[in-house]
Design a protein around this nucleic acid. Sequence first.
RNA 1: GUGGCUGUAGCUCAGUUGGUUAGAGCGCCAGAUUGUGGAUCUGGAAGUCGCGGGUUCAAGUCCCGUCAGUCACCCCA
Length: 446
Amino acid sequence: MADLIEPRTLKGFRDYPPALMLPRERVLQTARAVYRSYGFAPIDTPALEYAEVLLGKGGGENDRLVYRFKDHGDRDVALRFDLTVPFARFAAQYVGQLGTPFKRYAMGPVWRGENTAHGRYREFWQCDFDTIGTTSNAADCEIALVINDLFAALGFDRFEVRVNNRLVLNGLLESLGLADKAVPLLRSLDKLAKVGREKVAEEMAREAGVTAEQAGRVLDLAQTAGDNADVLQQAERFFAGMPNEKATEGVRRLRELLAVAETAGVPAGRIRIDLSIARGLDYYTGTIYETFLSDLPGIGSVCSGGRYDNLASLYTKQVLPGVGASLGVDRLLAAMEELKHPRLTGAATPAEVLVVQFDAARLGDYQRVARLLRAAGIATEVYPEAKKPGPQLQYAEKRGFKLAVIAGSQEFAAGVWKVKDLAKREEVAVPEAGLAARTRDLLATR
RNA sequence: GUGGCUGUAGCUCAGUUGGUUAGAGCGCCAGAUUGUGGAUCUGGAAGUCGCGGGUUCAAGUCCCGUCAGUCACCCCA
């Protein structure tokens, strides 16, 4: 007997059995449908790229988290660690053919060799959508609408899109003479909700070398509270004493975004101005979005993004501004599981109806009704063995089928099919002519 | 990458200061019940104690390494 190889998966990589894959596919399908409904077009790029393309010239901090190796032709290559950088390369390469503005979405796995944790893996999916080639605030407003429609379509009612604009924060830092320290300051500020004002102030002093008073000014603005109108008004007052062009423009854009969302019909309360949202990534330059589930804010943002001045400066001299966001699929699914979201049924089958195979000689009849139901849009499986109905019904309920269709000699003699609701354990006899319609009714009302 | 905790049957877990053939509940399979699954009873299968080394007369138990999970930092989705 040969030695067996132990079946196992790499640290941070996962298998997806049907019960995980089905809700995942539903989320991806929903996202795809919403993105497309706004005119975002699908693109894809290779998983593997030249390391130089993904890492830039320096490499630097990314070296640790990027899977990088020599291929068989001794090329220095790396697996993509997000969808944004390959998109920047793509945009630089094809902007001539694509024209601007250009709206795309992309969904796919990305890889990061960092340490694992609950809900954090070395292979995970991103679902990005971006509009590039325009600085118009209309594109920023639309991103907020997409996020709203996306979560509504996913079956969420209680969520909040928190919006800020880096121009406001950068304007403040400029006024305080701290513009060159924006990166460490904003990275610290991003932790405000998590660690509190005191610790953020400490970290700002330590990491960015600012005075306690300077840190206090930044935090005062960030912590402006109240409803959206209040916050914007207070921000304007805040800058009244030290007029700043950037901050003024930032506030104007936020004000417009709110007005557009309201007029376009986004329910009140869905969008909230939050001047403390910074996003750690230094390439954001304008509007910033984070999305929180009101019933589970602790899990963090489930859809984030923002505006950047120049996506593709590494690859082209053509300036390509843009704005977009990314759905955190794995985090969202973890949240849905924790919230016992009604769409997570735990089913391990995409089919709703199981045809019990009673009599092997009738297989053709079983497959005929199954096809009849499938033609009516109802996914239907015929049990692959003829045996006692008990075990077949057990199989059906365990896998998450909703209805069973049963017929033996009595039913065939009477010209009917029995349709059984597996949860209620009730069955009705239906002639074949009305079977599809009746089945659809039963599925709809359960 | 740093530090802490965890790893025993398909699942959830017991397992004494190291001491005989490692247990339970649930689940699973078969039968009582050759046309209908949530009950009961009877019987049954199933464990390289994550993996590898070491200490010991003796290791699930102690030590080291390793793999994996998890928590905190870091960073992020």
